[in-house]
Design a protein around this nucleic acid. Sequence first.
DNA 1: TACAATGATTGGGA
DNA 2: TCCCAATCATTGTA
Length: 428
Amino acid sequence: MDEQPRLMHSHGVGMAGHPGLSQHMQDGTGGTDGEGRKQDIGDILQQIMTITDQSLDEAQARKHALNCHRMKPALFNVLCEIKEKTVLSIRGAQEEEPPDAQLMRLDNMLLAEGVSGPEKGGGSAAAAAAAAAAGGAGSDNSAEHSDYRAKLSQIRQIYHTELEKYEQACNEFTTHVMNLLREQSRTRPISPKEIERMVSIIHRKFSSIQMQLKQSTCEAVMILRSRFLDARRKRRNFNKQATEILNEYFYSHLSNPYPSEEAKEELAKKCSITVSQVSNWFGNKRIRYKKNIGKFQEEANMYAAKTAVNAANASAHGSQANSPSTPNSAGSAGSFNMSNSGDLFMSVQSLNGDSYQGAQVGANVQSQVDTLRHVISQTGGYSDGLAASQMYSPQGINANGGWQDATTPSSVTSPTEGPGSVHSDTSN
DNA sequence: TACAATGATTGGGA
DNA sequence: TCCCAATCATTGTA
């Protein structure tokens, strides 16, 4: 550091732009003193040239003598400036580089994924976004979600550790090089500008390493994310109970199989699946049912009978028509009410054989029909519902291929429809 | 292994 | 935003 003032005092003014040298030579162009100084410079150059031939001690002594020589600053100034001009002509074009767009993209991505920036929220937000994109969060999904977060956190930790290492290494190396250059500036012409340039070169090199680190981190996040989403894409069939619950709801609301948001949530809870999965299931079911009604008739009959039997059992026990296997089995005030609606009677009427069922329903189902008739006569008050249900086609699909209007009599005819119950049929 | 069943995704319409 | 329709991709079964 204390060598600094000895290197270059100023730039640009004086004879040929070499103030130090000019100061010594300005009055010497025509006099004997000038001749003497030229001789001095010649001596210095000669000494420099021969310094390597001397012994170490001798060289050290000579070095010291040179450092203290009155012409040294001037000579260094000249050499520095020549060097400066040469280097500038080579590197001038590369000096000012615009901020790297690629680096900015990487930074933005790392920030968005929660790898860089504040830890809280970022990663989980990205994971939540990924979860939402893949259809919500169930019990399995939340396990995957936490797995995703754990892995993301691991990536984040590695990234920050490496980044710290790079920064530390960069600082250490920069300091080392600066010290080295300052030390060397005693014996060779090195300007502060050159040291600065060297530092910026080092920083550039390290930032390119940093960019590689960022790129690798981004790649790791992308791989993690795609794996996470792919795992979600792998479907698993719903378990039997879930399918039964969904089917029961579907067939008991056949005139308008559009569960409300509350009903979907309830179904999702009962089936241990997500609301999106419930929506998907109903979407698929409606279309597939409509496309091939005949194929689903037996299933429809079975669920209608099942629901009716459940209703009968519940009725026999003097309570509402709840069963453990039906969506409204919880029996809580907020649960949706799916049985005993007009839909059920629609199915019951179908079972009576006026339409397609006549030829298809087997003896077993026929006995269920008898049971249902019995249930109807016992529970009473259903005649209105029966009449109302006659407004619908057996499958609840109108002539246009769509389901009946949402304002179906199902909610009107339902004898157990309480004010607190959530009826999905009004959702559309 | 072929085929059916089924959950998920995508694009378009209202 | 929800739904429909088509389609994809995986799972289950004969």
